[in-house]
Design a protein around this nucleic acid. Structure first.
Length: 995
DNA sequence: GTCCGACCGTA
DNA sequence: TTACGGTCGGACG
């Protein structure tokens, strides 16, 4: 084990008890075997492991073990025969689960560790300290306070049930002392559940206060006479020996003899079939399905494992009477003959030669250029035929799905029909021949009265079709495959159908190939299938002659719509194995797919805008702009189109003969705000007027005039659309309207934000990450000063200025800090002297000097940038901390400026993209967390580092800590950040005041 | 009608 | 110096 490795230690015994009491009773259907703790345990492990990626980045687990108590009798009973003496026997329903959880651990292909005479905590302590000494990071998956004494900057804990990281600050917050003082604190307070005596009358608060004053227990005992409170003094003096004994009891052993060396805890790849066999034996259907999907295994082909169940108390569990316990120590040491025998019954992995990369190649070859026959598509016109298709889809468990509607806007779209594509097993049992059908529902004939003609005959009634569709789409055991699923998901949701069990080929492509081509269906089809699908405009027309899809002839519609479902399912067959082969399954499943329903709900909710405010602002802006126009014509000596950069340039630099600044790439004089500001500074009043005029007209045309047009006629709210696969870095984008660029930077623009308001009886809550990109930089580049500054919560730009310019933080001139801030941003953007000079309006040489000095003060940054560039050149892509890839195919361009641009983008992408990953994770976790808290708060908007919620007045105080907690802990458990994440949140009646 | 460049709003 | 989307003017057809 080495620096950069990361060891996960799961407190298995702790988990069993906690899960048993926290998770509602769950019994195996076939025989009533209680399995709630096993279920919780398997889900927890799966979650941890799905987050864990097998890369060489080193921030995710490289080593992993689950630790158990062997029995209740340990060396501590030699010290104190009453240790844990008041524990009662475990509940009957828990007893069989001790053994099952050990089986589960092995089915997950994880080391399962226990040691006679020691508690799990001692093993954890020993492994943690060894790993730490080797330079690795450690995450202990537990929330037990007894383990908090182990926390250090390199060792943190993770409460998997609350999804909270516990590091030094959290320990201090909870107990009032740093982790290294936890032993003394516990020695003083004792522990009634473990029967550790402590000192009577001393609780956590008093203990923390005494430790604050005296430093440690020994000093306190030595100077006990000084304590003022008589009772307390007497208690401490009288119970001196008891305190020292308690300290012995609570001190975890870091010298436990280990049967399994640290090095052997290396995290192995999953054995899909073995795990599935176990899960099937437990009858955990949904987890079985998820696992099968993740490893591309066919669960139906795997038999359930034979798992022996031990109802007797002999099976080792922490609190069972173990006098006659069998002899096994650690996994594989001995004993457990029944279990060993059972495991030989498990199917072996890869018996059928499953190998993702090979499968991906086979599939790509098979589908590329395979002809697509439109004449084979069918139109489904009656319920009986639809029922047969639905039954066939259920049979194969896999169906391509697409909706046809009247609008690209999912909130306005009317459903006209839908198409299905399924494997044609009858014709080709071995594989992947596909048949497809279109189900028209609301097609109208072109002829008829002025209202657009009547319904075409031979269409299934909407109600009947939807009822059949509901059964199929809501069944999680049938995988629906769509292209740009969010659209179809939202359309179906508006018809009362909540899809479950789905994949999205667009998002698969995005996870695999962001930056390398687009992810629309037509381009994917041409790229992977060598087939150009029928163009929409060839079916429905375009421009003025365009008709809505319900007016399209049904035969034409069938060819077009069925082909979409067909192509989508073919693309799935090509892309799905690539995810596994290229190790992008986790990115897809954690950061892409789960966001579909989350974003669909946000879009569906929308946000209220106050049209009166906007209308008033529009009036004010119009007046202001008109006044500027008169003055501008006066100063220019003629009337012209102020909004035309070309005409403006001719006036300023031609007619008036002013010195031009820069030129645009087409050779025109630039009239950018920067150029005009420079002219204004040189005493050209016209320039200032133009700048001001532009600001007003921009606000009016882009915001105050445009936004009311987006108010939905029924909901009366504004529903933006988020694009999941639009950026190279992993950010979302927002359009129609874009709610990610609502003004905020100056007072005039901010007025627009006051028009975004909460529903009566509610508040808007805005929660945003503080400096998330710089924190990510500190994390990935391992910059000691940055990490320290964030840990201490000090002003990061001031710290940078202080390091660079030797100016003390106290009383620092604003301009010095401003420069440092610009440099920090520059670093994130892949700095160049040219760009920094531009930003700060200084000479290139001076900017170059700044950069040089920055790199001298923070050499790690230079290393990081060089390494990132080298990685991008070598691989053609870069990676975020969660493994998302951004491709830069032009990074080796022979054109120096193209190359330099790609290098800067490649340096920026891991930083911007990691931040995007973090907020994506927060968004996925947010709704369950709010529901757990009994909160009805609704997430409405995302603006890259900010989430906006609508919260009932009475809930605001409870909701804010939940929201902040989810966001600050969003990276867990996949990785623990080396820098804390900080979130600020505020509630108000409108977005301006909440932000 | 459609496309592109310039400009500017956000993180 | 990174990442976006919207509006406008103006050129093209």
């Amino acid at each position: 084990m080495k620096n950069g490795d990361h060891l996960f230690l799961v407190d298995g015994s702790g988990f069993i008890f906690r899960a048993f009491h926290a998770i509602p009773p769950l019994n195996r259907k076939s025989d009533g075997l209680p399995v709630n703790a096993v279920s919780g345990f398997c889900n927890m492990l799966w979650k941890l492991l799905k987050d864990a990626r097998n890369t060489d980045v080193g921030v995710t687990p490289t080593h992993f073990a689950v630790i158990f108590d062997y029995s209740s009798k340990t060396f501590r009973n030699e010290l104190y025969d009453q240790y844990k003496a008041n524990r009662t026997a475990p509940p009957e329903d828990l007893i069989p689960q001790f053994g099952l959880i050990r089986h589960a651990t092995r089915a997950f292909n994880l080391p399962c560790i226990e040691k006679e005479g020691f508690e799990a905590d001692d093993l954890i302590a020993t492994y943690a300290r060894l790993a730490e000494a080797a330079g690795a990071d450690v995450t202990i998956v537990s929330s037990d306070k007894d383990l908090m004494q182990l926390v250090t900057p390199k060792v943190s804990m993770y409460d998997s049930m609350k999804d909270k990281q516990i590091s030094v600050p959290e320990v201090v917050e909870k107990w009032g002392v740093t982790p290294d003082k936890m032993i003394d604190l516990q020695a003083m307070t004792g522990d009634s559940t473990d029967n550790v005596p402590g000192i009577p009358g001393i609780g956590p608060k008093t203990a923390a206060q005494l430790l604050e004053e005296y430093g440690d227990l020994d000093t306190l005992l030595a100077r006990a006479e000084e304590i003022k409170q008589q009772k307390r003094r007497e208690n401490i003096i009288a119970n001196r020996a008891q305190a020292l004994l308690s300290r012995q009891l609570v001190t975890l052993r870091t010298d436990t003899p280990l049967d399994v060396p640290l090095e052997d805890l290396v995290l192995e790849t999953q054995d899909g079939p073995r795990l599935i066999a176990f899960l099937k034996a437990m009858e955990f259907t949904s987890l079985t399905r998820r696992v099968a999907e993740a490893c591309d295994c066919d669960a139906s082909a795997i038999d359930p494992a034979t798992v022996p169940v031990e109802w007797g108390a002999e099976a080792h569990g922490p609190d069972l009477d173990k006098d006659e316990a069998p002899g096994p120590g650690t996994e594989g040491a001995s004993g457990e003959s029944a279990a060993d025998a059972a495991e030989t019954l498990l199917p072996t992995a890869s018996a059928d030669g499953y190998e993702p990369a090979q499968l991906a190649r086979t599939r790509a070859a098979r589908f590329s250029g395979q002809p697509i026959d439109h004449s084979a598509y069918v139109t489904i016109r009656d319920l009986a035929t639809l029922d047969r298709w639905v039954a066939d889809a259920r049979e194969t468990g896999l169906v391509g799905f697409d909706t046809e509607t009247t609008s690209l806007d999912a909130m306005q779209a009317e459903l006209c029909g839908f198409s299905l594509a399924i494997a044609d097993n009858a014709r080709d049992p071995s594989g992947v021949s596909i048949r497809a059908a279109y189900v028209p529902l609301l097609h109208k004939s072109g002829v008829g009265d002025l209202l657009g003609g009547g319904m075409v005959e031979g269409q299934i009634p909407m109600r009947d079709a939807l009822s059949r569709l509901k059964g199929l789409l809501e069944d999680p055991s049938v995988l629906k495959v769509a292209q740009n699923l969010k659209y179809d998901y939202l359309v179906m949701k508006r018809h009362g159908i909540t899809m479950q069990g789905f994949d999205d080929t667009m998002l698969m492509s995005y996870a695999l190939d962001a930056g390398a081509g687009t992810h629309g269906m037509d381009s994917l089809s041409e790229r992977w299938l060598g087939h150009k699908p029928i163009a929409y405009k060839d079916v429905a027309g375009s421009g003025k002659g365009a008709q809505t899809f319900d007016m399209v002839d049904i035969d034409r519609a069938t060819a077009y719509a069925a082909e979409d479902a067909d192509v989508t399912l073919r693309l799935w067959h090509v892309l799905k194995p690539r995810l596994a082969a290229e190790k992008m399954t986790t990115v897809y499943e954690r950061l892409e797919r789960p966001l579909v329903p989350v974003l669909a709900r946000m879009e569906e909710r929308g946000i209220t805008i106050d049209r009166q405010i906007l209308s008033r602002l529009s009036g004010e802006l119009a007046q202001g702009a008109a006044a500027f126009e008169d003055e501008i014509y006066e100063l220019a000596g003629e009337r012209f189109t102020i909004g035309s950069p070309k005409q403006l340039g001719d006036i300023l630099f031609g007619k008036m003969g002013l010195p031009g600044g820069s030129k645009t790439k087409t050779g025109q004089w630039s009239t950018s705000a920067q150029v005009l500001e420079d002219l204004a500074a040189q005493g050209v009043p016209l320039a200032r007027k133009i700048v001001d005029w532009r600001q007003l007209t921009k606000l009016k045309s882009t915001y105050t005039d445009a936004l009311p047009g987006f108010v939905h006629p029924e909901t009366k709210r504004v529903h933006t659309s988020y694009a999941l696969a639009a950026t190279t870095t992993g950010r979302l984008s927002s359009s129609e309207p874009n709610l990610q660029n609502i003004p905020v930077r100056n007072a005039e623009g901010r007025k627009i934000r006051t028009a975004f308001i909460a529903t009566p009886g509610h508040k808007l809550v805005s929660a945003d990450y503080s400096q998330i990109e710089l924190r990510v930089l500190a994390h990935v580049a391992e910059i000691p000063q940055l990490k320290q500054a964030f840990a201490d919560g000090i002003d990061i730009h001031a710290m940078t200025a202080s390091e660079m310019f030797g100016v003390p933080v106290d009383g620092m001139p604003a301009d010095v800090r401003r420069r440092a801030k610009a440099i920090n941003f520059g670093i994130i953007y892949g700095i160049s002297a040219f760009g920094l000079a531009n930003q700060l309006s200084i000479e290139r040489s001076e900017a170059g000097d700044y950069i040089k000095r920055y790199f001298e003060r923070f050499p790690g940054i230079k290393d990081y940038m060089d390494q990132t560039k080298a990685f991008a050149r070598e691989n053609g892509y870069v990676e975020t901390i969660f493994g998302r890839r951004a491709h830069y195919p032009e990074i080796k361009s022979s054109n120096p400026s193209v190359r330099a641009f790609n290098e800067r983008a490649a340096i920026n992408a891991p930083i911007q993209g990691s931040a995007a990953d973090i907020i994506r994770r927060a968004m996925v976790k947010m709704e369950p967390a709010l529901a757990d808290g009994g909160l009805s708060a609704r997430m409405l908007l995302q603006v890259h580092d900010e989430l906006v919620f609508e919260v009932e007045d009475a809930e605001v105080e409870r909701a804010i800590p939940v929201i902040v907690g989810v966001m600050e802990n969003a990276s867990m458990p996949a990785l623990s950040m080396k820098v804390p994440l900080k979130v600020d949140a505020r509630a108000a009646l409108n977005w301006d005041e909440a932000h």
